[in-house]
Simulated assay, not measured.
Amino acid sequence: MAVARYPGRMSRSDPRLYLEVPDVTFSEGLELPLPAGQAHYLGNVMRQGPGDAVRVFNARDGEWAATIQTLRKDRGTIVFGTMERPPQATEGVELLFAPLKRDATELVIRMGTELGVTCFRPVITERTNTHRLNLERLALIASEAAEQCERLDIPEILPLESLKTVLSTWPDDKPLFAALERRPGEDGPMKAAALLIGPEGGFSDAEVALLQRHSAVHALTLGPLVLRAETAVCAGLARLALRRGA
């Protein structure tokens, strides 16, 4: 068995793994088995081995320096060193979006995670073309994006709901900014709680009227050009980040 060596400070090149074990709190000297997928990733993709440093994190325990203790095929163990970052929630917004084709939806999840989305809420609109989502795969993409961008928490991904249903229970005091094409946006210091991006082809007239009647909804302009839905997600999140001074 390899002898663990604890790194003094983590390197940005060290592999970073999301790991959360129910009823187990991270602590120095703790030894934990790796899930099969992560053991395979470390050994076969990252070419790591016993004695190599990794970083392990979750929202509850923060981020820890750790060392690979054993690694073989799809099995392995790590030993924890010191805490490097305490728990910290990402300060961002919820993202309501109409599902797109598979690759575009996965891109939305990846980019949204990197841009600080705290919760993804896919909504069905009149022009939504996709009504089925693989939530397990999307959760994996969000986890991988969090590992890459160095955030500590993984955004939640909720099941599909109709836009009408979501709006019917949306609190009046929770600002929701909607990207409405060819309509003036609102300026001012108000901080958004959520962003709504429509489907390919945009919202229907009835949906625009429904949004405009809701007291929590505020129009957000993304410029004079008509953007693809996945591009609008990036532009909208960046615009709201600037509004809140992020």
Rank of each mutant, 00 (worst) to 15 (best):
F177W: 08
A65P: 02
D172T: 07
G112S: 04
A4T: 07
W170H: 06
P159E: 09
P175Q: 10
L163F: 08
A241Y: 11
L107W: 15
E156A: 12
A4D: 08
E161V: 06
E181C: 09
S13E: 14
P35I: 05
Q69R: 10
A2C: 12
R60V: 05
V21E: 10
L227H: 03
K73M: 07
D23E: 14
A39F: 05
L71F: 03
L100S: 01
F80L: 14
V45A: 05
A194L: 06
T130R: 09
L176P: 00
L220G: 06
G116K: 00
A146V: 10
V79D: 07
F120K: 07
P159S: 07
G116D: 02
P171T: 03
E114S: 09
L196T: 08
N44M: 03
L163V: 04
L138Q: 07
F80R: 01
R47M: 06
C119P: 00
Y41F: 15
G37R: 00
G188N: 12
F80K: 04
G223S: 04
H131Y: 14
A238Q: 13
A232H: 01
R47A: 11
F57H: 13
T125F: 04
R243Q: 14
E147P: 01
W170P: 00
P199Y: 05
L237C: 05
E91I: 09
A216C: 09
G92W: 01
G81D: 05
E63T: 05
G245H: 09
L237T: 09
A2Y: 12
R12N: 11
E91W: 13
A209H: 15
V217P: 12
L71G: 02
S27W: 06
F80N: 07
L32R: 06
A146W: 02
E181N: 06
V117M: 01
G188I: 12
M10D: 14
A142T: 05
P155G: 10
E91Q: 15
P224M: 04
P175L: 03
G223R: 06
F120N: 08
E114G: 08
G185H: 09
A146I: 02
L19G: 01
A238H: 15
R16A: 02
V208A: 04
F120W: 12
E31H: 04
K174C: 08
G51N: 04
A65K: 03
Q88R: 13
T118I: 13
G92A: 04
I124T: 14
P189R: 11
L158H: 13
N44L: 07
A53D: 11
L19V: 01
L180G: 09
E94N: 03
G43M: 10
A219N: 15
R127S: 13
P87A: 07
F203M: 05
Y18I: 03
R9D: 14
P87R: 05
T90E: 10
A89N: 13
A232E: 00
E84H: 13
A246W: 15
A98Q: 05
A59H: 14
G116M: 02
A53L: 01
T130V: 15
H214D: 08
V54H: 03
A104N: 14
E84Y: 13
V56Y: 04
G37C: 00
P86N: 03
D23K: 15
K164A: 13
E161P: 08
E200Q: 14
R121F: 07
A59G: 11
T221L: 00
G112W: 05
G245V: 06
V233S: 06
G76L: 01
M83P: 15
W64R: 02
